[in-house]
Simulated scan of single mutants.
Amino acid sequence: MMRRYGMSQRFRLCSALWVPGLGGAIFLIRAGAPLTFAATNLVALALALGTILSEGVRCGPGARRVVSAALVALLALPLLTGQDVDGVARWLPLGPLALHSGMVAVPLLVVCAATDADVRWGAALLVAAMTCAAIQPDAATALALAFTAATLTVLSRSPAMALTAVLGIIAVAFALRSDGPPPQPFVEDVLPQLWATQPIAAILLGATLAWSAFILLTLEAPSRLPALASTAALAGFVAMSFLGAYPTPLIGYGAAPFIGFGLAFAGLTRFAARDAAGG
């Protein structure tokens, strides 16, 4: 029964990635982007789908805390490498690619925070990540974390998480002190620019992201709480892509969102299966 339940969840979660992923690839090709852009996204999408559908390792609570600490370290890594663009350090070099560190680390991080039995530990994780985002500066990551903390505050009614949500708003304000590098075509401002010339296409492309949110919001227990946290994080990234020069996840050019949300969606079912089994 648990096996069928887990596979059903995984197939649903796959659609939350391949629907916007394919929609984004079609947009990139039709908009005249280099074919390598669509190819990169599709390869990253395929890897993400394979991660979600594979059995993998079901991490227990202790291992989950180790993973979450490693994700915070990964988020901080651009600050330690000393490489920045116009005073901004929020990218992880991977050969010819530069991965947005927040979109790689934050999706799984918020799943770890939401599934931890100690709300205070989850709050501490989010505060550490917010601090990294504020220093980088990365308002998109800070807003994703703030939305997550606000969502978990409503669900847990924890004073520690409420304070974290307030700190998240402060982190967003601090991160907005820098404009950063200019917007990159096909990466940032995707929906606003498409709306200016092809509003119907913009609506259809935006609907693919709405589909992702719908899938997450309708997941069954025991994945529901981390799924709501994932929805909040995705909403934060998308919202900031309208407000500044930040990547549009899953539909704009970039492998990082597929890596990050692929790991997060895999974690949703594996953590839930492990917790439901009492391990």
Rank of each mutant, 00 (worst) to 15 (best):
R3Q: 14
R10V: 02
S15M: 05
G21I: 04
A25G: 11
I26L: 13
F27G: 03
F27I: 06
L28R: 00
L28D: 05
A33S: 07
L35M: 06
A38S: 14
T40Y: 00
V43A: 15
L45N: 02
L47N: 08
S54F: 00
G56I: 00
P61W: 13
R64C: 04
V66L: 10
A70Y: 07
A70L: 10
L71E: 01
A73R: 08
L74H: 09
L74M: 09
P78D: 06
L79G: 05
T81Q: 11
V85A: 13
G87A: 13
R90C: 07
P93V: 01
G102K: 10
M103L: 15
A105Q: 02
A105Y: 10
L108T: 01
V110H: 04
C112W: 01
C112H: 02
D116L: 12
D116E: 11
A117C: 10
W121S: 03
M130G: 13
A134G: 11
A134T: 12
I135P: 00
A139N: 10
T141A: 14
T141D: 00
L143E: 01
L145Y: 07
P159Y: 14
P159Q: 06
P159V: 10
A160I: 04
M161P: 03
A162F: 14
V172P: 13
V172R: 10
A175E: 12
G180E: 09
V190W: 00
V190G: 09
L194C: 08
W195F: 14
A196C: 10
A196T: 11
Q198F: 15
I200K: 06
I203V: 15
L209W: 00
I215S: 02
T218F: 05
E220F: 14
A221D: 14
A221H: 15
R224H: 14
A229V: 08
A232F: 12
A232S: 07
A232P: 06
A233V: 08
V238I: 14
V238T: 06
V238S: 02
A239T: 12
S241C: 06
P247E: 02
L250P: 12
G252K: 02
A256Q: 01
P257Y: 13
G260Y: 05
L263M: 04
F271V: 11
A272K: 04
A272M: 04
